[in-house]
Simulated assay, not measured.
Amino acid sequence: MKIMLLTAGQGTRLRPHTERIPKPAIPFLNMPLFLYSVNLLAELSPRQLVFNTFHLAEELKKTVLSSHLQQKITFSDETILLGSGGGIGFARDHFQEDPDFILVNGDEVIIPKENQQLLKAMEQHRKSRAIATILVTDHAGVGTKFGGVWLDSDNNVLGFGKTPITGAIRAKHFIGVIIFSKEIFKYIPQGESNILYDNIMSAIRQGSICKTFDFKCEWFETGSEKDFLHATENCLKIISRNNEGADYLQKMLEIYAPDSKLIIQNDGIFLVDNSSEVIMSQLSGNVIVGHHSQLSPACQIFNSVIGHQITVTRQKNGVTVQDKLILF
């Protein structure tokens, strides 16, 4: 099994942070965002990961390679931004050996609620002989904040978007993962395209079947700084309260951020790397502190994320950092 990770985008809604750090490399709970996608798919034992690159490509490669992943790593370097469909088409030579491959966004935070769901999704995909099986979940924002995946009574995909489609009986939320038959390449021309609205819809119009698989999970939006901080708060609460998904996140931390320590106090929940210089009384609310960061004793940090190798300096009257994402 081979995996394509979409990691070329510019992350415009998370600027200015993404002007210096590619979004998939931004630390979430002290782990690069792309690792959440890699870890999610680990149960399929993929042998190769293909990352497409464009925006801050060298920074992305540095972060990926420093993560010491076990799979073969390949980069598909785009000279212009090709979109989700065009990026797959440009990398098609990597996906000709196997009948199926998986596409995943490289900046999703997905916490599965059950084990072996991807194995079940793969089994369903192969039995249905669908050209694509889209992983979906329920979400209150479908049709308003997010476009939905619109389905008929037989669970066939009819289309995408916020507006209901004729014949559809319900809409689901796309979580950023699709299982593809390699036949999809027939519907991906050269150049820029969107995998949902252009390529999958072209296949459906020409008679191909596209299905969905209901994936039981917590899915978190990280597109804006506000969303990122809200997702951070929710994930810290999952771990501290031992809610569904806590074991999954704890295991990720053990593998990818073993020096990060979870600290639960009356005034907050903190995830602090052991190499950082910080006094616990400086922190309140939900706080993340990355590796080798330094906080001046006069600083107070509230509901914020301090990235790796950050120095928050003392000012005349001290400094309070509240509801902030500080990455450089």
Rank of each mutant, 00 (worst) to 15 (best):
S84P: 03
S84L: 09
G85M: 00
G85N: 03
I88F: 00
I88H: 00
F90N: 14
A91I: 03
A91E: 00
D93I: 05
D93M: 07
F95P: 01
E97W: 01
D98G: 00
D100H: 14
L103M: 12
L103C: 04
G106A: 02
G106S: 02
D107T: 07
D107V: 06
D107Q: 07
I110W: 02
I110E: 05
I111N: 03
K113E: 10
Q117R: 09
Q117Y: 04
Q117I: 04
M122E: 04
E123L: 12
E123M: 08
H125N: 08
H125Y: 06
R126Y: 02
K127C: 08
K127D: 10
A130M: 07
T133E: 09
T133I: 11
I134C: 03
I134P: 00
L135P: 02
V136F: 01
H139L: 10
A140G: 01
A140W: 05
G141D: 13
G143I: 03
K145H: 06
K145V: 10
F146H: 14
F146N: 12
G147C: 08
G148N: 13
L151A: 05
S153T: 13
N155M: 13
V157E: 01
F160W: 15
K162T: 13
K162E: 12
P164C: 11
T166A: 14
T166G: 06
T166C: 07
